[in-house]
Computed example of a mutant assay.
Amino acid sequence: MPATAAPIGRTPDGLPIGMQIVGPYLEDRTPPRFAELIEQEFGGFTPPPGFA
């Protein structure tokens, strides 16, 4: 099964929170495309403070 991960926010301590997106059998392009849409809504990845 195709899968990818996407950042969706931060904890109160500033650590990143992510979600795993699993797509249907033989639909390898679905999870990355959905991750792109999630990134547009949540702003994408930014390094935690002190790790830039």
Rank of each mutant, 00 (worst) to 15 (best):
L26I: 03
F45W: 15
G44Q: 02
P49V: 14
M1L: 11
G9S: 02
G18H: 09
P2E: 07
L26K: 08
P16V: 09
G9E: 00
L15G: 05
T46F: 01
E39D: 06
G14L: 03
P7Q: 08
G9Y: 02
A3H: 08
A52D: 14
Q20T: 11
L15M: 15
P48R: 11
I17V: 15
Q40I: 08
P49W: 03
T30A: 11
Q20L: 10
V22T: 15
R29Q: 11
P2H: 08
Q20I: 07
Y25Q: 03
T46N: 10
G44D: 04
A3G: 10
P12A: 15
M1K: 08
Q40M: 07
P2N: 10
F51W: 13
A52C: 04
T11C: 10
E36N: 15
G43T: 05
G14I: 03
Y25V: 08
P47F: 07
R33M: 04
P48C: 09
L37Y: 10
P48Q: 09
G43K: 05
P7I: 06
I8Q: 00
T4Y: 01
D13I: 07
A52E: 15
P2G: 12
I8R: 00
E39M: 02
F45M: 01
G43H: 07
R33Y: 06
T11P: 10
F51T: 12
D13H: 08
